[in-house]
């Protein structure tokens, strides 16, 4: 009984997070400007991280935790580098 409740709500949460990922992907593909795409990429990283955490609860294993942490680290560094590029890459300083 209680396992069924948890199973179904985790399923619902994963569906919602997946829809959120689709939304960020849409913004990443459509644009219109570079900063919109980078913002969407950052959001995509975070949602993927949360999806991994729910997967960890579902499979009752802690392996996904390390993956999620790596994802958070890489997302931060990548977004900072891209934002820096926006400030310096195109416009003469």
């Amino acid at each position: 009984m209680s396992v069924t409740i948890l199973e179904w709500s985790l399923f619902a949460a994963q569906i919602m997070l997946g829809l959120g990922m689709l939304a960020t992907l849409y913004r990443m593909v459509v644009g219109p400007r570079a900063q919109d795409r980078i913002l969407a990429l950052d959001a995509l990283y975070v949602v993927a991280l949360l999806l991994l955490i729910t997967l960890g609860i579902r499979t009752n294993s802690q392996v996904y935790f390390e993956l999620a942490m790596l994802m958070g680290l890489l997302g931060f560094v990548g977004t900072v580098a891209l934002a820096k590029f926006l400030m310096r890459g195109e416009v003469i300083e």
Binding site: S2, V3, I5, L6, W8, S9, L10, A12, A13, Q14, M16, L17, L19, G20, M21, A23, T24, Y26, R27, L39, A40, A43, V46, V47, L50, T54, I57
Partner: peptide, 24 residues
């Protein structure tokens, strides 16, 4: 435990999804 965890996970996913839809 299952009710508490379920409520937190669903509400958190709902908020995250709302933020992503806001992006669109």
């Amino acid at each position: 435990l299952s009710i508490l965890v379920s409520a937190f996970v669903v509400l958190g996913a709902l908020l995250t999804m709302a933020g992503c839809f806001g992006l669109v």
